[in-house]
Simulated assay, not measured.
Amino acid sequence: MEQKVKITWLGTAAIRLEADGETVLFDPFVQLVGGENPNCLDDFLQDQTICVTHGHLDHMMDVPEFLDPESDAEATVYCGEVATETLSDMVENTSNVVKVRPGDVIRLGDVRILVMEGKHAKPGKSQVFQKLFSRRFLQYFRNALALAYLNPKFPEGGQTLMYEVHAEGKRVQVMGSLGLQEDQEYPQGADLLILPFQGSEFLEAVALEVVERLQPKRILLDHFDDAFPPVSEHVDTRRFKKLMDEEYPQIKVVKPTAGKTVVL
Rank of each mutant, 00 (worst) to 15 (best):
M1F: 07
Q3M: 15
K4W: 13
K6S: 06
T8I: 04
A13V: 09
V24S: 02
F26I: 09
F29D: 01
V30P: 00
Q31F: 04
G34H: 04
N37A: 05
D42S: 02
L45P: 00
G55P: 09
L57H: 15
M60Y: 13
M61C: 08
D72M: 03
A73R: 00
E74K: 12
A75F: 04
A75V: 05
G80S: 04
S95M: 02
R101P: 00
L114A: 13
V115E: 00
Q127S: 13
F137H: 12
F141T: 11
R142C: 14
K153P: 11
E156R: 14
Q159K: 13
T160A: 12
E168I: 09
E168G: 13
M175I: 08
L178P: 06
E182K: 15
D183V: 11
Y186Q: 12
Q188F: 03
G189T: 09
I194C: 06
I194G: 02
I194M: 07
L195E: 04
L195R: 05
Q198C: 09
P216R: 05
P216L: 07
R218F: 09
L220T: 10
D222K: 14
D236A: 15
T237N: 02
T237A: 03
K241G: 00
K241W: 01
K242T: 11
K242M: 08
E246F: 03
E247K: 14
I251Y: 07
K252Y: 03
K252A: 12
